[in-house]
Each structure stands twice: as C-alpha cells, then as structure tokens.
Amino acid sequence: MMKSQKPFATESIEIHAKSQEHARQIVQHADPKYLKSIAIYQQDLTSIHETVELESSKNIKNLSHFATASIHFENLNVETIRAIKEHFLQFHQHDKHLYVSNNVVENMFIDAFGGAFEQPGELEQNWFFNVPGNYVKVLRVVNGYRSFEFLFVGKCEIPESYVILN
C-alpha cells in the first residue's frame, strides 16, 4: 500500500502485482513529467523488488529505505562493495536484503574482504560480519559470480566451519 503525499519522479517503473488494478494504483503515484517507460507483470505471489541505479558508492545511503532492493551496477569496484557493507552494518533494522545482478570481476570480493569461506561443492563465496550492538544477527555477503547479495541472518544459521569477521 502506498501513501504518497506527492508523485514520485522516475523515468521508468517495473511493477509486479497480483492484478492490473494493483498496478494502476501504483502507477497513479508516478509523476508523468518524468515517466518514460512502464513494465507491468502479473504474478500470483507478490514480491516487491525496488530497482535503483547508483552512480557511485557515495549514493549507497539511498538504499536505506528499501526492505528489499535489487540493483545493477555499471562500474562495480572494491570501494563500492566495501561502502555497501559499511552502510548495511549501520542499519538499525536487520530485515534489509540487497540483491545485485552483476558479473563480478574475479577476486573483487577477496580484494574487498579477504579470503572467502566456501563449502565444498558450493560455487558461491560467503563472508559473515559482526553487526555492532547485535548479538543475534550477522551480515552475510554472498558472491555468486553472476550476482551477489547482502542480507542479515541469525548467527545460528552460520555453518560451523565459517568465521565471523569484524
């Protein structure tokens, strides 16, 4: 449910909704001065992924209002990856999840965080970071090579062979 006081400015919008009526309710809040493209997809299950494009790591703070964000970086670098991690560690709500679709340059995450923890037979790399002031949750960073994720998980969900980093 959206309760917008004024129309939001966006050039494009992609809506995944249960019905065309739900999609129309969302579209009516977009400012027509800026809107160039609309994509509407009907789904049985509604999952909202908000897509944002960031020009630099200085704009990472723009993610803080999203529960789930899905983004694509044109020029991903080590500085941006570190900035995302630091920004996530400052969240007070630990329900955030960032999914980034991007081909990751080999060793970029190792350059950012050091050696990865990999389970035998798994293709993804994992890092776990302590969350300041939280003794229950940790930040998990997953590099799947075609995409990566930042999400909070319970400490009890970490396999025994993994180490939690500061």
Results as ranks from 00 to 15, higher is better:
F66H: 14
A17N: 07
L54G: 01
G154L: 14
I110Y: 07
G114H: 02
A9W: 13
V104D: 05
L35Q: 11
Q5A: 13
T68W: 04
Y99L: 15
N134M: 03
F73K: 08
P159R: 08
V52G: 08
N103S: 05
F128H: 13
T46V: 15
A17C: 11
S70I: 03
K33Q: 12
P7Q: 06
L45T: 06
K33C: 04
K96N: 12
S101H: 13
A23G: 05
F88T: 05
L98H: 05
T51D: 11
H16C: 07
A39Y: 11
E55Q: 13
P120A: 09
F129K: 08
L54T: 03
G144W: 09
H92Q: 15
S147R: 09
L76T: 03
V138C: 06
L98P: 05
F66A: 10
F150A: 02
N134W: 01
G121W: 01
T68A: 09
L98E: 01
T51Y: 12
H29S: 11
K137W: 01
P32Y: 04
T10L: 15
H22D: 00
F91T: 04
Y34A: 05
N102P: 00
L63D: 07
Y162V: 09
L35D: 06
E122S: 07
N59T: 11
P120N: 09
L139T: 01
P159Y: 12
I38G: 01
M1C: 04
V153T: 13
G115F: 04
S161L: 10
I60S: 01
F66S: 10
A67C: 10
S37I: 02
H29M: 08
E50N: 12
D31N: 15
I71V: 13
I40R: 03
I71T: 07
K137D: 07
N59I: 00
A69Q: 02
F150Q: 05
E149H: 03
F8T: 04
L165P: 00
I110L: 06
Y99I: 14
